[in-house]
Structure formats: C-alpha cells, structure tokens
C-alpha cells in the first residue's frame, strides 16, 4: 500500500516513473482482474492466440504478458 513501486520491483517489474500506479485493496467481495496490455508483435492476434500469452501475474497486476516468440 505504501510502496507499490517497490513491491512491483520485488516481482521483477520496473515501471518508468511517469507510469501511474493504481492499487486496489480488495476489501469487499468484489474481485478485480487486470486486462493485460497487448504485447508488441501480437497485433491482429485472435483471442485464442492472445490467451497463450496471458500469465497469472499479468492478470493480478504484478507482471507483463509473454511476448510473442518468447519461451513460456
């Protein structure tokens, strides 16, 4: 809560200072999923192809999806 940028760094995610950070503290029964950004090289991919790039961390906001061609 106090140092989300530092927590992201623990997960190996370093964001530029100009990138805003939003933290959702899940204090009720609502659960939030992050919609991962489409990685470069995946333009025009189908939903099924994109699903191959999605990781757990990319949907909880602590990582990026895989990039096309990278080992899974």
């Amino acid at each position: 809560m106090k140092d989300p940028r530092g927590v992201l760094a623990d997960f190996g995610v370093t964001l530029p200072q100009e990138t805003d950070i939003r933290v959702w503290d899940s204090t009720a029964e609502t659960r939030f999923l992050v919609l991962p950004m489409r990685p470069n090289g995946a333009e025009g991919w189908s939903e099924q192809q994109l699903a191959e790039l999605v990781t757990r961390d990319s949907m909880i906001g602590t990582g990026f999806p895989r990039t096309p061609g990278a080992p899974s």
Binding site: M1, K2, D3, P4, R5, Q17, E18, T19, D20, I21, R22, V23, W24, D25, S26, T27, A28, T30
Partner: peptide, 27 residues
Amino acid sequence: LYTVVFNGAELWGPDADPSVKISIDAF
C-alpha cells in the same frame, strides 16, 4: 458499497510517490 480512491500523499504523507493512487471498497 463504493470504490473510494485516495491519493498516495493523503494516506502516506508528503514523501509518498505522487504517481500512486489507492482504492478500497467501502461500505
């Protein structure tokens, strides 16, 4: 039930990262 957004500095003081916002779900 509402999502309420707080600025980092409102919660953590003047040294807080100005690019951070924190939300809670508040009854």
